[in-house]
Write a protein that binds this DNA or RNA. Structure first.
Length: 823
RNA sequence: GCCGGGGUGGCGAAACUGGCAGACGCACAGGACUUAAAAUCCUGAGAGGGUCACCCCCUCGUGCGGGUUCGAUUCCCGCCCCCGGCACCA
């Protein structure tokens, strides 16, 4: 009897897979392709079981698809740029490259010890020049197309990390997403990607992402935030200028009794100059701006404002209305100015009541009552010739008039903003631009790429871009005029790196282009993508943006990069997400030493559906180990007889009852597991189905009557389990497969098929209800007629008791399912 | 406030199209094996009750209250609670 020693099997088969390059692939047009990908990893140093769950999920899918005959691309890489490495350099004096490459080596070892079937030859790390040069290449393409541009803008500045943060990186109450410090405002020249160019497409194409979680799509829709409305210009009384507002409620424009500017609005300084006390005016506006990110987002801040001294003319009533500066008007949304309609907007009402501004009702319900902010079943009044129109009709008609008069137009406004990508940091992709006093901004020519990161020795943590303090880096010749010029010293947001790495995997070593379009055409889009829900907006919108950019560059023919998205649930320990600081991290390596890789893999798949959060349980892991040992033992017990029995056809009719039952269970299990994995994506129930079959095998071995064909039937059942379980427990199953006489390795095996006839039950157990309550279960052959079934059901003693001599009013028979008697 | 997802035994969960609620596992209990224990194999178990010698039988039970239906964890209406996201976007 062979003992089950999983650690030995882990070593043996991992060495075998590496030696035979078992998971390396090339394009093969004769086979259907499957691109299986897990979100690549930030090399923090150590992966805990919360991280590895994702890789295990992906590996189950990859191995399953291989068994089903697909040519499977399953690569892995490293999101290797980023702040933590640079912060460590400042603190500990270790160069980011040293720590990053060290962390990568360690984590790669962890993944290999789990037996994840990656095509390691395609491994990439974004911090290496042969990757980030293509960020730079793409940046210059986007610059040429006007998709990358520079502008001065107010940015979120983290005083601890000394860097600009994207709006998306400012979380909760206006704090830095990494360090939790309160963000302040600062004006800087910044590079932007024009993601808003694709806002409508990103929104509408989301409808077609049928295999994405609804939750993610909703988050993206909210993020893009499309609003239909109109822009209208209000002339300023006394000067030739005007103020443009955006509104979704132009039907209420006759009720606009004041106007508000965001504190950032360009006219604020103009109005300040003509005020009595310019200094005080500007200070008040400045105070509002400071509230901006911090207080304003929590809703704690009260609505506040002050009168500018100027009036605008409502172009529809022709009445003058006061222009105020208000703290609740956002500078970066719409035009930074809004019309105040206190009767039909809750916020404006609050403001008007506070400052005693006039309130004029212009919308009422069809029955004449006051309506607040609703449009449904409402009509406008007090609105001149538009009186009596529904809100929707009034919107159309008033927009039309505004357009005809040349003072406005219907438009669509998005909440989505262009993506600021400049970072004043060292450990990122240098932005490939040169500032020339003669030629202005000049892109670095392709043949001078990559712009390599210099190996600076000192990290001071000062606020400036570290690259700015390296003269050899900064001082260059202008590519156009050859004169002295300065290099751009900012680096790119690391989300740039992760927005297209999945295409690079299709052609990871190309040194002419980011990828060969033909290779990407074969592999892309990604068929199965899994990762954390925390990337629902940022990474997954940016990637959709980049795929559109590549599409418009003519390099790919699809627009959506990920066909099927799975957001895996976190693994909790003691009710909390695992983290080093909480000290509740479960280290996969210690689990591997105790139970082997397969038990861990099986456990995380069995404990719950993949998208669900789970609480870590040592005894649950032990249970999975017990199951694998059980499979091992039953396979070992039958091995000699089963392999001797060969693979001759089974004479089903000649089997004993117990053998037929086992065979039925085996075929039914294949059916269930195939459905669960393929159609329903429910790995946990697939595992429990296999557990049932193994239990049945034990019962059969213990006491089933056997014919000469018993070993043949056992072999069929056991080999089915070996193959179906191999994605979950590849090391153990490879070993058993070999022990059952297969020299070719389980990679060469085929997913088992099932015989629907054999899988069918020989006898059905039909529940019988009387007045909706279960009263009996009758055993009948599947071929039974309704009439015969009814007769048997009614003949049952307990059924008779509950019918109590009455005549059934109705008998419902659902074929193969149940009999329901109504009396 | 708005949007999304949930609420089923002691615990993780399952129930596919409206058809035997709780598969499978964990923990627990009992038995076999053992000098003993561990491991292993087998058995039991939603709660309550009846007959209790057994086979069985009955009532209740999927957050709460209604409804549709022969029949509801599943569909409809109205609530409660939990988790996640968004939140002055005009």
């Amino acid at each position: 009897m062979a003992e089950y020693h999983p650690q030995e099997l882990d070593r043996k088969w991992q060495a075998h897979w590496a030696a035979t390059r078992a998971f390396e692939v090339t394009e093969d047009p004769s086979k259907p392709k499957f691109y299986c990908l897990e979100m690549f990893a930030y090399p923090s140093g150590h992966a805990h079981v919360g991280h590895v769950r994702n890789y295990i999920i992906g590996d189950i899918v990859a191995r399953l698809k291989r068994l089903q005959g697909f040519n499977v691309l399953h690569p892995f890489g490293w999101d290797a740029f980023g702040l933590p490495a640079e912060n460590a350099a400042i603190k500990l004096g270790i160069h980011p490259e040293t720590s990053t490459l060290g962390n990568i080596a360690h984590m790669k070892g962890q993944l290999q010890r789990l037996g994840i079937s990656y095509a390691w030859e395609r491994e990439l790390a974004t911090c290496l020049p042969d990757y980030y040069r293509w960020n730079q290449w793409l940046f210059t393409r986007m610059f040429e197309k006007g998709l990358a541009y520079r502008r001065r803008s107010t940015v979120n500045w983290c005083p601890v990390d000394n860097t600009v943060l994207a709006n998306e990186q400012v979380i909760d109450d206006g704090v830095c997403w990494r360090c939790g410090t309160r963000v302040v405002q600062k004006d800087l020249e910044q590079w932007f990607f024009k993601i808003t160019h694709y806002a409508d497409d990103l929104l509408h194409s989301a409808e077609g992402l049928s295999k994405w979680p609804e939750k993610v799509l909703t988050m993206q829709r909210n993020w893009i935030g499309r609003s239909e409305g109109a822009r209208v210009r209000f002339p300023i009384q006394g000067i030739g200028d005007s103020i443009e507002v955006f509104t979704t409620r132009i039907d209420t424009i006759f009720g606009a009794t004041f106007m508000m500017l965001a504190p950032e609005h360009g006219l604020v300084t103009t109005f300040a100059k003509e005020s009595e006390n310019e200094q005080a005016f500007l200070e008040k506006a400045q105070r509002f701006r400071a509230q901006d990110r911090s207080g304003r987002m929590t809703g704690e801040v009260q609505k506040e404002g002050f009168f500018t001294g100027r009036f605008a003319i409502n172009p529809f009533t022709n009445l003058p209305i006061p222009i105020w500066v208000a703290n609740y008007v956002l500078g970066e949304y719409g035009t930074g100015a809004v019309m105040g309609v206190p009767a039909h907007d809750d916020r404006d009402r609050e403001f008007a009541v506070k400052y005693d501004l006039p309130i004029k009702d212009v919308v009422k319900s069809t029955s004449g009552e006051a309506v607040g902010a609703t449009t449904e079943g409402s009509v406008v009044f007090n609105s001149g010739k538009y009186d009596g129109l529904s809100c929707e009709d009034a919107q159309r008609a008033i927009t039309k008039e505004a357009a005809e008069r040349g003072i406005g137009y219907g438009t669509v406004q998005f909440r989505l903003k262009d993506w600021g990508i400049s970072r004043q940091r060292y450990w990122g992709t240098p932005i490939p631009m040169i500032h020339c006093p003669v030629d202005g901004i000049v892109p670095v020519p392709d043949d001078q790429l990559p712009v390599e990161l210099p190996k600076v020795a000192e990290f001071t943590g000062r606020g400036d871009s570290p690259l700015a303090s390296i003269p050899e880096f900064v001082n260059v010749k202008c590519p156009k005029c050859g004169g002295p010029a300065r290099r751009e010293t900012d680096t790119m947001d690391t989300f740039v790196d992760s927005s297209w790495y999945f295409y690079r995997f299709a052609d990871a070593h190309n040194d002419q282009l980011p990828f060969d379009p033909k290779k990407v055409a074969y592999w892309a889009p990604v068929d199965f993508y899994s990762g954390g829900i925390e990337h629902a907006i940022l990474h997954l919108i940016y990637s959709r943006f980049f795929s559109r950019v590549f599409h418009d560059l003519g390099m790919i023919d699809h627009k959506e990069p990920f066909t099927h998205l799975l957001t895996q649930g976190m693994v909790l320990k003691d009710g909390a997400v695992m983290s080093k600081s909480k000290g509740n991290v479960v280290d996969p390596d210690s689990m591997l030493q105790k139970y082997g890789a397969d038990a861990l893999r099986l456990y995380v798949m069995f404990v719950a559906p993949p998208e669900k959060e789970v609480e870590w349980s040592d005894s649950g892991l032990e249970g999975s180990f017990r199951f694998l040992a059980r499979v091992w033992r039953i396979a070992d017990q039958w091995r000699d007889a089963a392999t001797a029995a060969g693979k001759t056809a089974i004479d089903h009719a000649a089997l004993s009852g117990a053998e037929r039952a086992l065979r039925r269970k085996a075929h039914d299990t294949i059916k269930r597991v195939t459905m669960d994995l393929d159609v329903r994506q429910q790995m946990n129930t697939a595992v429990s189905a296999m557990m049932e079959l193994v239990n049945e095998l034990y019962a059969f071995t213990e006491k089933g009557e056997r014919s000469a064909q018993a070993p043949r039937v056992a072999r069929e059942a056991i080999e089915s389990v070996i193959v179906m379980l191999s994605p979950f427990a590849p090391h153990t199953m490879e070993e058993l497969w070999q022990r059952y006489g297969h020299a070719d390795g389980i990679n060469g095996a085929r997913w088992p098929g099932f015989d629907a006839e054999v899988a069918k039950a020989e006898e059905l157990e039909i529940p019988v209800q009387v007045n909706g309550k279960l009263r009996a279960v009758v055993r009948v052959p599947p071929s039974i007629s309704d009439a015969a079934l009814q007769q048997i059901a009614l003949a049952d003693a307990n059924v008779q008791t509950h019918i109590a001599g009455k005549t059934p009013k109705k008998v419902v028979i659902v074929k193969g399912k149940l009999v329901s008697v109504v009396v």
